[in-house]
Design a protein around this nucleic acid. Structure first.
Lengths: 334, 334
DNA sequence: TCAAAAGTGTTATCCTTACACCCATGT
DNA sequence: ACATGGGTGTAAGGATAACACTTTTGA
């Protein structure tokens, strides 16, 4: 394990000292695979008797790069063709699962976010597309403040108040206010911070699990589906990243069919960001940023007046530095 | 290495199948440690006879989390106290270094970005603070277009023209235009894309190294210091991330002393982003966003009229969702 | 005919950009 | 006195947010 008194890696083989072969180590690749169908942001989940989990696979020796490894087994397993793929984070807490003293087997997991255009029926019978709000019901503000906050707010406040001392209490209160913005502005991107607070406060099952406690009448958990290991944390991170990225890079279009209506585009953005947008301003923004162009066709499948079909204008990538769907503030619609 | 016919991880131990113990595997942690002194963005580099490299160390068994592991050995080795630390990326190309058929030893490396307030003389004699523009001279536009572009532009164009077929050529041309924005707008954040293009075009030493070619009169390399393995790529990513993040999170302040003048703050932002900013507008933005508050003191160390000393106002974190130093466009100054 | 979704137009307001200018210190 | 950096005022232009309103379809 060599903490090594030698100061820094030797020059001959720079990475020789940078890592020590460790047999008690395994590396996995996990994927948050996202699609949007109609009003729902979907994620591919695997059920196997135990808790639901994200599709995960081993890093194999013949994979040249991590991303290539991920693509190859995901496409083999789920028969989904992945579009945009990006690395999210590498999780490596020593005790990611059952650590028994010396036998602590470190399971490193490299998490990826992948976007697909259409949600196929899922190759594997155990895999299913689920709305991501199934795991994070408190993240969907499209119909206003979710009722679940009647439980969240007092619960978290109690947790802050129950801090061992004043300093910790103040810090907890600050984190709450930052993540949830009770009272003031809420930032739809802080999905991970919110999950982590609920985790620490023991309000999600995973948080209790860590301490070997089961949910009980005294220690109730919020509604919202539990996942294996730290997969729900990975999902939270994926949502946060996507919600952020959508604003400055044209990633939504990776989730849309080749041609679509402005209404459908707005639905997709709302589904992902979890807030309602002001229709007229949304359309104006999209059009004047010249993110889309006419196909010349129209569809009447959306109900009401038939809508023009548009397509993504790839050229914008070359024209402006950060073309994204800026969210024109949460305006009440409907 | 079991491609495994079983479809997906078993429920019993979710990560058991997700990673296979692989003795030909090592995990390292690398750190891009950044400080700003005066006009220069500094990075801690280690020299050891061979190529310069980033401080790197092994992941040890007793480290509870990856970040904690990084902090502990960096602080032990360099006697720097790390402030803000964030994970950048996990690099895991199979052939990160000397792969000999079956003996291909995969060296996974988790790269981190760390910010420090003051650049201490560096504990290790082999470690030194270097301006990051030493490695990326083409990224410093503070004094206008760097002369080095007289070599870069034709070189890259030639590479695009020399593509094996028209489709590849068009794609290369598009990537060039996106990353470098020859003619039109340049995006200071696309540091990684630019480096990767120069790498692929064989214009940086690392790119030639990959093919076992040495720089020669026919295949000249650009000025800009070479680094070991893929460390320069890590540095490119770190710069890109920091340049991006500075705009929507108050990270610059992690690099500033407790109190500073607005001029010093502007110098730091310019050093990091590599562009000049319009003085008056910069100040107005900072002040009206209420990112700083008066200390009541002043200093005359900056030359010219003494300047007020200000400090970061931590409360902004609670007030607005994305408080960052938005760059008020590159205006000529001086 | 009416609900539902698409699409147009206009206005007040704020933020960004740019320009011109004054202030206090060291040499 | 003048160079250097610090600091103020103000006006033009563009983007945003909020309004109200028309159009075209299917049930």
């Amino acid at each position: 394990m060599s903490p090594s008194s030698a100061p820094l890696p030797s020059p001959a083989r720079p990475d020789a000292a940078a890592g020590t072969a460790d047999t008690a180590l395994s590396i996995g690749l996990s994927a948050v695979i996202v699609a949007v169908t109609g009003d729902d942001p979907k994620v591919l989940a695997v059920r196997h008797g135990g808790h639901e989990q994200l599709p995960s696979g081993p890093l194999e020796r013949n994979h040249r790069t991590l991303e290539q490894g991920l693509r190859s087994w995901v496409e083999r397993q789920t028969h989904q063709v992945l579009g945009h793929v990006e690395q999210l984070y590498t999780f490596g807490d020593r005790d990611r699962r059952e650590t028994d003293g010396e036998d602590a087997r470190r399971a490193l997991s490299v998490a990826y976010l992948a976007l697909v255009r259409e949600a196929r029926p899922a190759g594997d019978a155990d895999a299913a597309w689920e709305s991501w709000y199934r795991y994070f019901p408190w993240e969907d503000w499209r119909d206003g403040r979710p009722a679940i906050f009647d439980a969240i707010e007092p619960g978290l406040r109690a947790w802050a108040a129950a801090a061992p001392n004043a300093a910790v209490g103040a810090m907890r209160a600050e984190r709450l206010s930052l993540a949830f913005g009770f009272g003031q502005t809420r930032d739809e991107e802080r999905v991970l911070e919110r999950y982590e607070l609920l985790y620490e406060a023991g309000m999600v099952a995973e948080g209790l699990r860590e301490h070997g406690v089961a949910p009980s009448p005294e220690r109730p958990c919020l509604p919202g589906a539990e996942m294996a290991v730290d997969h729900r944390r990975m999902l939270a991170l994926a949502i946060a990243r996507l919600r952020g990225k959508i604003k400055y890079r044209p990633v939504v279009f990776e989730l849309m069919p080749p041609s679509f209506t402005l209404g459908q585009l707005q639905n997709a953005v709302e589904a992902l960001s979890g807030v309602r947008l002001h229709k007229q301003n949304f359309r104006r923004l999209i059009e004047q940023q010249r993110l889309v162009e006419e196909t010349g066709e129209a569809t009447s499948e959306t109900g009401g007046r038939p809508a023009r079909l548009v397509r993504f204008r790839r050229e914008v990538l070359l024209e402006r530095p950060a073309p994204g769907v800026r969210l024109p503030s949460a305006g009440v619609r409907r």
